[in-house]
Simulated scan of single mutants.
Amino acid sequence: MKKVIAVLMLLLPLMAQAQERSYEPGNFWQISGVKTMPAKFDAYIDDISGLWRSQMEKMKDDGKIVSYHIMVNVHPRDNEPDLWLMVQWTSAADMLDTPWDYWDELTDDIVGSVEKSRELAIDRGELRTIMGDTLAREITFK
């Protein structure tokens, strides 16, 4: 009996490997939950339609991201975001391993300087609160 159990224990990983999955791994998504301050929703949307949108378009042109989306929470409950900012990355490496120089150049091109970007980030803090960021990986059925 012990030999049978030992053989089964050795075969289980092989059996698991042989099973075909019904899905394929896809792109990585960075999802940020945003809660706008009272009466600041339109002001925040106006703000990100400039800077954030410009950054996303440049990163699309550079092949870093596939797409970006904004989802509005139609009926937010207490402590839920009003918006989700979603960025579909071409790869985890593009998201995690892009050199700092790239980000500095992107900031300089769009905003003018890293210092100006910091000032804008402080101002943006009056419009919204980031409730959290999530990294997810898309899967698609075969």
Rank of each mutant, 00 (worst) to 15 (best):
M1T: 00
K2M: 11
K2G: 15
K2A: 09
K2E: 13
V4A: 10
V4G: 04
A6I: 01
V7L: 10
M9H: 04
L12W: 03
P13L: 07
L14T: 02
M15T: 12
A16R: 05
Q17Y: 00
A18I: 08
Q19Y: 03
Q19N: 10
Q19T: 05
E20F: 06
R21L: 08
Y23P: 13
G26Y: 02
N27P: 14
W29R: 08
W29L: 14
W29G: 01
Q30L: 07
Q30H: 08
I31N: 03
V34R: 09
K35M: 04
M37L: 12
K40T: 03
Y44A: 00
I45L: 07
D46S: 13
D47N: 12
L51N: 08
W52Y: 04
R53C: 10
M56S: 08
K60Q: 12
D61H: 04
I65Y: 05
S67D: 15
S67P: 13
H69Q: 15
V74G: 15
D78V: 03
D78L: 13
E80N: 06
W84N: 01
W84S: 09
L85G: 08
Q88F: 00
W89D: 03
S91C: 03
S91T: 10
A92G: 15
A93E: 15
D94R: 13
M95R: 06
W100A: 15
D101M: 06
E105L: 10
E105A: 14
T107C: 06
D108F: 15
D109A: 11
E115G: 05
K116C: 02
S117Q: 05
R118N: 12
E119A: 03
L120C: 02
L120N: 02
A121R: 04
A121M: 07
R124N: 09
R124I: 02
G125S: 06
E126T: 08
E126Q: 06
L127G: 01
R128N: 13
R128A: 11
T129E: 12
T129C: 06
M131N: 05
M131T: 04
M131S: 04
M131A: 05
D133S: 13
D133Q: 14
L135C: 05
E138T: 03
E138Q: 11
